[in-house]
């Protein structure tokens, strides 16, 4: 099994070399669906290169790079980060809507920023180091 880290979370998937995986796993990880015309999300479809789809398998790393996103992997390919392009980060802030996130407290209970809508929020960072 291979670990894939994205903004959507951490996934464990079976692959056949590199980051070639089933269309179902590719969709679970990326939010993009494999269709005859390419990888699709909402109304948008991005054509795939011929060798990026073989026998129902998708090369998700190749697709992710095609979108302009950074991709980093360990030497053995057992862990991958499908990163987020600078443009996507900038666009997320440009409308000034505070990007939502969900994080645990010390007890492991998850909290989302969006749960605090209706209040002013002082969001601050710190670290032990």
């Amino acid at each position: 099994m291979v670990t894939v880290l994205t903004d959507r979370g951490e996934h464990e998937v079976a692959t056949t070399g590199g980051l070639r995986l089933s269309a179902a796993d590719a969709e679970k990880i990326s939010g993009w669906t494999l269709k005859p015309e390419g990888m699709c999300r909402d109304e948008l479809c991005v054509p795939l290169a011929g060798d990026a789809r073989v026998g129902g398998q998708v090369d998700l790393a190749a697709f992710w790079s095609l979108l302009g996103n950074p991709v980093v992997a360990t030497a053995t390919g057992d862990a991958w980060v499908l990163g987020t392009a600078a443009e996507t980060r900038a666009n997320a802030l440009a409308g000034l809507q505070a990007p939502d996130f969900t994080l645990p407290d010390l007890a492991g209970v998850s909290h989302s920023l969006s749960e605090l809508r209706g209040k002013k929020v002082f969001l601050t960072t710190w670290a032990s180091w």
């Binding site: 809507q97 505070a98 809508r117 601050t124 960072t125």
Partner: peptide
């Protein structure tokens, strides 16, 4: 860096 802060209003705007 830390500490850095963002102020967010009631509508979720920065």
């Amino acid at each position: 860096n830390v500490p850095q802060s963002v102020w967010i209003d009631e509508e979720g705007h920065i």
